[in-house]
Write a protein that binds this DNA or RNA. Sequence first.
DNA 1: TTAGTTTATCAACTATAATATGTATTTAAG
DNA 2: CTTAAATACATATTATAGTTGATAAACTAA
Lengths: 75, 75
Amino acid sequence: MDMRKLVGRNFARLRREKDLTQEQIEERSGISQQYLSGLERGQRNPTVITLYELAQALGVDHIELVRPSDEDAKG
Amino acid sequence: MDMRKLVGRNFARLRREKDLTQEQIEERSGISQQYLSGLERGQRNPTVITLYELAQALGVDHIELVRPSDEDAKG
DNA sequence: TTAGTTTATCAACTATAATATGTATTTAAG
DNA sequence: CTTAAATACATATTATAGTTGATAAACTAA
């Protein structure tokens, strides 16, 4: 189970659904665009505080880290 | 919102509900008893990978980080 | 009390999360 | 094609996550 990829994929998806750029997330959260780029590519292992700050920047109030189904895990 | 305290309180509660010691969690997860002590006292900011390893050691497959109610936040 | 178990504290250390800066690459639009 | 915006890449630095070892403190039971 690659938590980096799980978090990265979900963050990227949510950011795009809300039509926000990495720069806009940086403005809202103070987390650098370069870091966000690495995060979305599954190269980062954020702390729970960083995860919470990202959720706030996305306007999300409920973070779930669920063991993905076998089907999901394949990709 | 103090994520350290939120995670620490919930981890300690779940661990006790399952009658596990910090040492037993160390055996299962490889995360040191000293670290777990600090975590439960709200002094640690774990990464998502550490959080996932802790969840596995507890036998939990669903992690939720929810913005607590005002009432909960008081304590 | 004693002994055993569990948790907390301390210090030194290693690994890596996160920042800062600059730049290169990609992508979309004219 | 050009241009601008968005994203990816590289490097160096700082802050802190997490380990290790030893030990102190707290708690329970005999």
